[in-house]
Computed example of a mutant assay.
Amino acid sequence: MTRRLGSGSLVIATHNTGKLKEISALLAPHGLKCLSAGSLGLPEPAETGTSFVENALIKARASTEASGLPALADDSGLSVDALDGRPGVYTADWAERQWFEGEPGRDWFMAMGKVEGMLQAKGPNVARDGAFHCVLAIAWPDGETAVYEGVARGRLTWPPRGELGFGYDPVFIAEGMDRTYAEIEPEEKHRISHRADAFAKLVAEQFGTGG
């Protein structure tokens, strides 16, 4: 039987307020108080893994070791079929400004533009299929871990549309939809997203009645 989370505090291993808000909303029905690593002043570990699973575990373990509380980390990203799965684990890195691109920080419009530029370079008939991936990793202070993986297939559009969401949401349209992630209300996104898929698996195992 997989170990289960009890009630109480859970560190969400992120400094991203948008991601904290989304994860907190998904966990709200289960009585957990979510604290962000950022609000606790925890350092951000170097994400040296070559897969979403490796990076999620790095972040979860760092937060649980620093806080003494159970920690949940999310590593998620966009993979574009025509780009051989890129940006993949480097999804956030593509948004990092280089020294000649202005003040340090992440520029998601720039990142979306990089993806679009690479697609357009492949010609007008390039396939625009892709997927958002999400891995959720839970780590406990004693070293035990659990991992859950989710995926949402879809296609890329241009130009970006919508003011909701974050990251690459304005250019991603999920299968069966005609609006981008950034054009739908958070509650609707929570039901269909890659993170929702991973959370459904986490909730079934962590809070369900099965063994």
Rank of each mutant, 00 (worst) to 15 (best):
T2Q: 14
L5Y: 04
L5H: 07
G6I: 04
S9A: 15
L10H: 05
N16D: 10
K19N: 09
H30A: 06
A37I: 01
G38N: 04
S39H: 11
S39F: 05
S39G: 12
P45S: 08
E47M: 02
T48W: 01
S51I: 06
F52L: 02
V53W: 01
E54V: 04
K59N: 00
K59C: 00
T64W: 01
E65H: 05
A66D: 04
P70W: 00
A71E: 00
D74E: 15
D75S: 10
L78A: 09
D84S: 15
G85D: 09
R86K: 14
R86N: 14
P87K: 03
G88Q: 03
V89T: 14
V89G: 03
R97H: 14
W99T: 14
P104Q: 12
F109M: 14
F109C: 12
M110S: 13
M110P: 02
M112E: 12
G113A: 09
V115E: 09
E116A: 13
Q120G: 02
Q120W: 02
A131Y: 02
V135E: 01
W140C: 00
V147M: 02
A152E: 08
A152T: 08
R153H: 14
R153A: 13
R155A: 13
P159Q: 10
P160Q: 04
R161W: 09
G165H: 07
G167V: 04
Y168C: 07
D169T: 09
V171P: 03
V171K: 05
A174G: 11
M177I: 08
A182G: 12
H190N: 15
S193C: 14
R195Q: 08
A196G: 15
A196Y: 03
A196D: 02
F199T: 08
K201T: 05
E205P: 02
Q206T: 05
G210L: 11
